[in-house]
């Protein structure tokens, strides 16, 4: 397999993963923990399993890494995709009798995934209840606005924006790690 069209070779993937710093490992672990908690109530999937599978799929080819994005973001998106598919299948097997058709399974899968994501977002936004500015920043950020666009939209200078973003990152990190907020 070559590194055609911007996709990394297995050796490049290996080098990039070996070069990750401790902070990147922590981010990856926190993300994997969030997906485990959101998707796998009562199941035995560990965050390490999600990380292992994401790396294996990147090395083997089913999820090739486009070097236009960071390896961290690539692994995040792979974990998102894998945890959704695998756990939804398990939940469907548990909830829907085997003789039911695939349409019923798909319907259950969509509903289940949607409720999970909605709950997660709701919990994160509730961490900032009463803090209008933080909620606005969070809302704009989750709508895909860049830092400079948000500064213009909310009338913040760079220092004020960064201070607020730092507070939000701290609480979101804490929440994704253990499902709780931080005061």
């Amino acid at each position: 397999m070559g590194g055609d069209e911007g996709f990394a070779t297995p050796e490049e993937v290996r080098t990039a993963i070996n070069a990750l710093d401790p902070a990147s490992y922590v981010k990856l672990m926190v993300i994997a923990k969030a997906f485990c908690r959101r998707r796998t109530v009562g199941s035995v999937v560990e965050p390490e399993d999600l990380i292992h599978d994401a790396i294996a799929k990147t090395l083997d080819g089913p999820r090739r890494w486009n070097r236009a994005v960071s390896i961290l973001k690539h692994l995040d998106r792979t974990i998102e995709s894998d945890s959704g598919h695998e756990v939804e299948r398990r939940e469907i097997r548990r909830a829907v009798p085997l003789q039911e058709d695939d349409v019923a399974a798909d319907r259950f899968s969509d509903a289940h995934a949607g409720v999970d994501t909605a709950d997660e977002l709701d919990q994160i936004f509730r961490l900032f209840k009463g803090d209008r500015l933080a909620l606005d920043l969070l809302r704009l950020r989750s709508d895909g606005y860049s830092a400079s666009e948000i500064q213009v939209e909310l009338g913040l200078d760079e220092t004020r924006y960064e201070s607020l973003a730092k507070k939000i990152r701290r609480r979101v990190t804490k929440h994704l790690n253990d499902g709780q907020g931080v005061k």
Partner: peptide
């Protein structure tokens, strides 16, 4: 949710 995880990646 992806946008919020991207926020974490900037920490």
């Amino acid at each position: 949710f992806r946008a919020l995880r991207d926020l974490l990646m900037e920490a």
